[in-house]
Simulated scan of single mutants.
Amino acid sequence: MATVREPVALIVGFACHHLALGAERVHLFFDVPHDPAAKVAATIPGVTVTLCDADYWREAGFAKPPALQTKRQTVNANRVMAQSDLDWLLHADADELLWLPGPLADELAQVHEGAWLHIPNVERCWKTAPDGEIYGGIFRGPLHDMPGLAERVYGKRAAALSGGMGGYSAGKAMARVGEGFLAIHKVRDAEGAPVRPSVPAPGARILHFDGITPAHWALKNLRYAEQGAAMNQLLNTQRMASIGAILQAPNPERAGARVYEALYRLNEDEAATLREAGALFDYPVDVAGAVARVAPHLSPDFSAEGFDRLHRAELSARAQSIVRQKRQARRNA
Results as ranks from 00 to 15, higher is better:
Pro147Asn: 10
His91Tyr: 11
Ala295Trp: 03
Ser84Gln: 04
Pro300Val: 05
Arg79Cys: 00
Arg176Leu: 09
Leu274Arg: 02
Gly180Ile: 13
His18Lys: 09
Gly228Ser: 02
Gly171Met: 11
Leu235Gly: 03
Gln110Asn: 11
Ala272Thr: 03
Pro214Trp: 00
Ala23Val: 08
Tyr264Asn: 08
Lys64Phe: 06
Trp88Met: 01
Ala193Phe: 09
Arg239Glu: 12
Arg58Ala: 13
Glu268Trp: 02
Arg327Val: 13
Ala109Cys: 07
Ala92Val: 03
Ala319Gly: 11
Leu315His: 04
Pro284Cys: 03
Ala94Gly: 12
His297Leu: 02
Leu108Arg: 04
Tyr224Leu: 07
Met174Ser: 09
Phe281Asn: 04
Val259Ala: 08
Ser198Trp: 09
Asp210Leu: 10
Lys220Leu: 12
Ala277Val: 03
Ala23Lys: 07
Ala204Val: 09
Tyr224Ile: 01
Gly178Ser: 12
Ala229Ile: 03
Thr128Tyr: 05
Leu143Gly: 04
Tyr260Ile: 08
Ala313Cys: 04
Val285Phe: 00
Lys39Ala: 15
Gly155Thr: 07
Val12Ile: 12
His311Thr: 11
His185Trp: 06
Asn251Arg: 13
Thr3Arg: 10
Ala175Asn: 13
Asp308Asn: 14
Tyr264Trp: 10
Thr237Cys: 02
Ala159Cys: 04
Gln320Lys: 13
Gly22Pro: 07
Pro200Ser: 09
Ala41Gly: 09
Ala304Val: 12
Asp269Cys: 00
Arg330Lys: 13
Glu6Gly: 08
Asp210Val: 01
Ala23His: 08
Val323Ser: 10
Cys16Lys: 01
Leu86Val: 04
Trp88Arg: 01
Ala170Tyr: 10
Met165Glu: 10
Gly22Ala: 08
Cys16Trp: 01
Glu253Ser: 15
Gly46Tyr: 04
Lys186Leu: 11
Pro66Arg: 10
Pro202Ala: 14
Thr213Pro: 05
Leu89Thr: 00
Gly192Ser: 12
Arg312Ile: 02
Ala229Asp: 15
Leu98Arg: 07
Ala279Gly: 02
Pro202Cys: 07
His208Asn: 13
Gln248Cys: 08
Ala67Gly: 03
Ala255Gln: 12
Leu90Ile: 02
Leu310Lys: 13
Glu226Thr: 05
Ala333Ser: 15
Leu19Arg: 06
Lys326Glu: 10
His91Glu: 06
Gly148Gln: 07
Gly148Thr: 08
Leu298Gly: 05
Ala183Leu: 09
Pro66Lys: 06
Leu247Ile: 14
Leu234Ala: 13
Pro7Glu: 07
Asp93Leu: 00
Pro284Leu: 04
Asp210Gly: 00
Met174Lys: 06
Ala82Glu: 04
Glu6Ile: 02
Gly166Val: 11
Lys156Asp: 15
Ala175Asp: 06
Val285Trp: 02
Gly180Ala: 12
Asp269Met: 02
Thr273Tyr: 00
Arg223Leu: 12
Arg72Lys: 08
Asp131Met: 07
Glu107Arg: 10
His17Asp: 06
Gly155Lys: 12
His118Phe: 14
